[in-house]
């Protein structure tokens, strides 16, 4: 059995696979690096797989919190893991878009599903999950409900500031001058989509374009991204655990090479 752990800035994910690369257990916990989240996710994955820790031959940790997690055998970046996980799930994938809590990335894959090139956001949080969190907080809704809120948008609102801090005050002033929450939610999605589309233009978005990461569950962002990029975007099943799947696949591969 092989374990992949993905410790993000706002959530922890764990996946257990067997030698046939079948997923036996998976778990997502909504607390990330520096908390009990990773332990809880790993524990839940074990319970789902119905196995204990000794059965794990090899484990790989990835994500923002990978450096400080010392219980795995190896650590690999989320860039490499998301690429691997996405290519495994959708072999025709040539581009992976992953919007994480701190980082947004666009990864180009070669025909074997290996990382060919990648780009990430500038240092600030524009175009990342953090931006959406801030927007959800201002709109007084949960991050999960942001998408359904935006479905009822009636008018286009543009959030022009790329900086999260400034966007926050911009949105507050729009709300105070009577803008509808639904429209603002849609504007937030559009703002993220624009930044990520810009990122993608730097290396080009070759089809098939696959989206991974928790933000992929937000239909509003995906729709806005499709509109901004003019490309069809496939959301992989269980997008939030793709990094952990990639990590588990690397665990399997490393162990096979070792034996």
């Amino acid at each position: 059995m092989f374990l992949g752990i993905d410790i993000g800035s706002s959530s922890s994910k764990a996946v257990i696979i067997n030698a046939q690369l079948k997923i036996l257990g998976k778990a997502v916990f909504n607390t990330g690096a520096g908390t009990q989240g990773p332990e809880k996710a790993v524990g839940a994955a074990f319970r789902e797989a119905g196995i204990s820790g000794e059965k794990i031959k090899f484990s790989v940790v990835t994500g923002y919190g990978r450096m400080t997690y010392d219980k795995a055998d190896k650590q690999i970046t989320e860039i490499t893991c998301h690429a691997r996980g996405a290519a495994h799930m959708i072999p025709s994938a040539r581009t992976v878009i992953d919007i994480g809590g701190q980082d947004a990335k666009v990864i180009r894959l070669d025909k074997d599903g290996k990382v060919e090139n990648f780009v990430m956001n500038e240092k600030c949080a524009a175009g990342t999950g953090r931006f959406l969190e801030v927007m959800a907080r201002i709109l007084d809704c949960s991050i999960g409900n942001l998408s359904s809120l935006s479905e009822n948008a009636s008018e286009e609102i543009i959030i022009s500031n790329t900086c999260t801090v400034f966007a926050e005050s911009e949105v507050i002033s729009q709300l105070s001058s009577g803008a509808k929450r639904e429209n603002v939610a849609q504007g937030a999605h559009k703002a993220v989509a624009k930044r990520v589309a810009g990122l993608g233009s730097r290396i080009g978005l070759a089809p098939d374009v696959v989206m991974t990461g928790g933000v992929a569950l937000n239909k509003g962002v995906v729709a806005a991204l499709e509109k901004e990029t003019g490309q069809k975007i496939t959301v992989v099943e269980n997008p939030q655990i793709i990094g952990a799947i990639g990590a588990a696949l690397y665990a399997w591969e490393t162990a096979s090479k070792l034996s």
């Binding site: 923002y64 450096m67 690999i76 970046t77 860039i79 490499t80 980082d103 990382v115 990430m120």
Partner: peptide
């Protein structure tokens, strides 16, 4: 530093 480290590691992996 965290962003730098991730990027360098990803470079190394490539």
């Amino acid at each position: 530093l965290a962003q730098y480290e991730t990027r360098i590691q990803a470079l190394m992996e490539m």
